[in-house]
Write a protein that binds this DNA or RNA. Structure first.
Length: 432
RNA sequence: GUGGACGUAGCUCAGCUGGUUAGAGCGCAGGAUUGUGGCUCCUGAGGUCGGGGGUUCGAAUCCCCUCGUUCACCCCA
């Protein structure tokens, strides 16, 4: 073989057979469940005006400052491949005045996202998400419902031992003073912190809680926690969310380290961690964003949502031994022995497919043995032989591959015979 | 962007400290008294040993560069 001239770009991949089926399973099950929760699917562009992401996600975030694929057009406009879906949905929500409908409005969107990161296990430059957004409800029951939905989807997929981590990031009123307080504390202990954390003091102080260095973790035990300085309203909101979650079921643990990297999050934030993944083990995460709609030029409408990482979820399923798909099999394989009966063969194949049977034949003029092997490889339930003898007698040889029993079935009885063996199928533009 | 590991047949990998025509398993193709699968057996196709340069009588094997993959950091789904 020759070296391939072209390969998929770094961080992208071709998703081939069993993997495709597992992903389809994830998407199918999620769609069905989202329907039960009254969500509507929305398809938004894979690229938007760069400005939308800058405003929405935040100029200083890593995503916007160094991970976006941006490009221009002839008129000098700047666009970016979407690094996440929330901004696009919020934009569409405002653009189509969907806030004039009765609240809340529930939407979801499935598709690829793009970030120019260095790939590693569970992190790619093109990755797929199921993105779910609930707009127009600031009540804590909405938070609980959204979180429960997220867990419900994973439960439905058969994933176990997941950890749901919950935190509150407060609002504009309580977060700013807290930030000051935290920075003050960090400055005091700055000498004992790692280089990264010293950087983080000015870039994104909340992130220090996520540091893995033991020295930092030790110092941070004494640090002020956001949870304990939430304003009265945020405090109450958070308490209510926990109460609602309590009655709904999903176990969770409070984790002040959960600090999302997108600027728009307020109040409830959450992550779902899989035990079977590597460093990138968050398979679903989200939170509330009460100012985002307004920041994007819409009315002051609260929102919250989450994204499920399809790639990571699929990997977690694979590692947990969850196939998520059925092994493929074939109803019928039609074999012919002589070349001039190929017209007869393909005609019958066509008829059977229109009757809703999955059916295949050989196109490469293989020997009978080879055709049988092929039929076996495709896991055909039944093999139909069309040969000189059969034509002369007006019958077809029909072999049950599981039992190896074979009998002769008259032409006109074939369909009834197959219905009896395989069950009736939904017809696909059946002829005659 | 930073760091580690690895790049040998379509896939998973052997190939000891450099030595003649580079191997296995799986997969693929064909066959085992000529119209019949799965098991077994036989045969075959398929590799410029990621690419380039260097050291050497001689390099898949050593050195440098480069590209790619992978894992981790940063960050995130």
């Amino acid at each position: 073989m020759v070296e391939p001239k072209y390969v998929a770009p770094t961080g992208t991949s071709d998703i081939l057979s069993p993997e495709v089926e597992r992903r389809n399973c994830i998407v199918d099950k999620a769609r069905r469940l989202l329907g039960l929760y009254c969500y509507q699917e929305m398809i938004v562009p894979t690229f938007e005006h760069t400005e939308l992401f800058v405003r929405g996600i935040g100029e200083a975030t890593d995503i916007v400052s160094k991970e976006m694929y941006t490009f221009g057009d002839q008129k000098g406009s700047s666009f970016a491949l979407r690094p996440e879906a929330t901004s696009g949905i919020v934009r569409a929500f405002i653009e189509h005045s969907l806030y004039t409908k009765s609240m809340p409005q529930k939407y979801f969107c499935i598709g690829p996202m793009f970030r120019k990161e260095k790939p590693q296990a569970g992190r790619y430059r093109e990755f797929y998400q199921i993105d779910v957004e609930l707009l127009g409800a600031e009540q804590p029951s909405a938070d609980a419902e959204v979180i429960a939905l997220l867990m419900h989807i994973f439960q439905d997929l058969g994933l176990k031992n997941l950890t749901l981590k919950l935190n509150s990031m407060g609002c504009r009123i309580c977060r700013a003073p807290y930030r000051e307080e935290l920075v003050g504390y960090l400055r005091k202990v700055e000498k004992g912190l790692c280089r990264n954390c010293r950087e983080r003091i000015k870039k994104n102080p909340l992130r220090v809680f996520d540091c893995k260095v033991e020295g930092c973790r030790h110092l941070l035990r004494e640090a002020p926690e956001l949870i304990s300085v939430l304003c009265a309203q945020c405090q109450e909101h958070f308490e209510e969310v926990k109460k609602y979650l309590g009655v709904m079921g999903p176990d969770y643990e409070l984790d002040p380290k959960v600090v999302r990297g997108l600027d728009y999050y307020t109040r409830s934030v959450f992550e779902v961690v899989s035990p079977s993944l590597g460093a990138q083990n968050v398979i679903g995460a989200g939170g509330r964003y009460d100012y985002l709609v307004e920041d994007c030029g819409g009315p002051p409408i609260a929102g919250l949502g989450f994204a499920i990482g399809i790639d990571r979820t699929s990997l977690a399923m694979k590692r947990s031994g969850l196939k998520g798909y059925e092994d493929k099999s074939l109803d019928l394989f039609i074999i012919t022995t002589s070349h001039h009966l190929r017209f007869e063969t393909i005609k019958r194949l066509d008829i059977l497919r229109h009757q809703g049977f999955s059916a295949e034949m050989d196109h490469l003029s293989r020997s009978m043995k080879a055709q049988m092997r092929l039929a076996d490889k495709l896991r055909a339930k039944i093999v139909i032989f069309i040969g000189e003898d059969e034509i002369r007698k007006g019958v077809l040889g029909v072999r049950d591959m599981a039992t190896s029993s074979q009998e002769e079935v008259p032409f006109e009885d074939l369909l009834d015979y197959l219905y009896q063996k395989l069950g009736r199928k939904e017809k696909w533009g059946a002829r005659g």
